[in-house]
């Protein structure tokens, strides 16, 4: 009970701090807007495979990319907190380690939900078609991505303890993770070896699931697969970050 209350108290604190910085909000929307309006039109002639329109192919991938990149770098704030003694102070209060983490993760997830809604709304005038059930499932998928990536980013930050190390590590992983997931173009276009390489990337299945949702195949096995993979990953990610929070020291 106290853990839940502490989580919400911390969450509303972090959310308040975030909303005070409007520049950040604009930056968070700039990337999806660029991709939707400056990149998506190129796809109209390039792909448009089968019955699914190019915008319905592109948006689900874009959403995964936005959520991955939106949340991947949240660890930076925690390095700042570590250095200023915030984490240490919090660890001496009676709030549980779970609440200390979940307060931050919840803010990241709520931000992701807002971003997802905005991207869907921006894509509608471009011809995006989505059923309400599909939209809800799509948002759920984004929430799970947030629950996977955000704790991992905090765990990594608490482990390496410096921006100089965190940046290169995140960039090292994010590029192949992104390109091997078929975010920008479906991997159906990929040569055999690339396809096999991508099958090692869990986010490929997440993108597959996302695309199925926007193709109207809500009951497709690919959707289930994507959700199951994310649930397992988010649990692992959370356990990892809890361990790091228990030992966190500047």
């Amino acid at each position: 009970m106290k853990t839940l209350k502490d989580t919400l108290v911390l969450y509303s604190h972090y959310q308040k701090l975030l909303l005070r910085n409007p520049a950040w909000m604009l930056a968070a929307l700039f990337q999806p807007v660029c991709y939707l309006y400056l990149f998506a039109p190129l796809l109209k002639n390039a792909t448009g495979v089968g019955a699914v329109s190019s915008i319905n192919q592109f948006t689900p991938g874009l959403l995964v990319m936005v959520s991955l990149f939106g949340v991947m770098f949240v660890g930076y704030t925690v390095i700042d907190y570590l250095r200023n003694g915030v984490i240490e102070r919090l660890r001496v209060t009676t709030a549980s380690r779970f609440a200390l983490l979940m307060g931050m993760v919840l803010r990241d997830v709520v931000t992701l939900i807002a971003q997802t809604l905005i991207v869907i709304m921006l894509a509608l005038p471009l011809g995006l078609e989505i059923t309400p059930a599909g939209a809800v499932l799509s948002i759920l998928l984004m929430v799970l991505i947030g629950l996977t990536v955000s704790p991992a980013s905090y765990a990594l930050a608490l482990t390496v303890k410096s921006e100089d190390a965190l940046g290169p590590i995140l960039n090292f992983f994010s590029q192949p993770l992104l390109l091997l997931s078929g975010v920008l173009l479906p991997l159906t276009l990929a040569p055999d070896w690339l396809l096999r390489l991508s099958s090692l990337n869990p986010f490929r299945y997440v993108v597959d699931a996302s695309r199925e949702l926007y193709s109207g195949n809500l009951r497709s096995p690919a959707v289930l697969k994507g959700f199951v993979i994310l649930i397992v990953l988010s649990a692992a990610s959370f356990l990892w970050s809890l361990r790091c929070m228990k030992k966190a020291a500047a």
Partner: peptide, 27 residues
């Protein structure tokens, strides 16, 4: 109560907000 060398307030929140949040985390 513990006051470390660095203090550990949220820099972007006010002192008052920091205190209220701290109190709430202690129940």
């Amino acid at each position: 109560g513990y006051v470390s060398q660095k203090g550990g307030c949220y820099e972007l929140a006010t002192g008052y907000e920091n205190m209220v949040l701290q109190g709430r985390l202690y129940g």
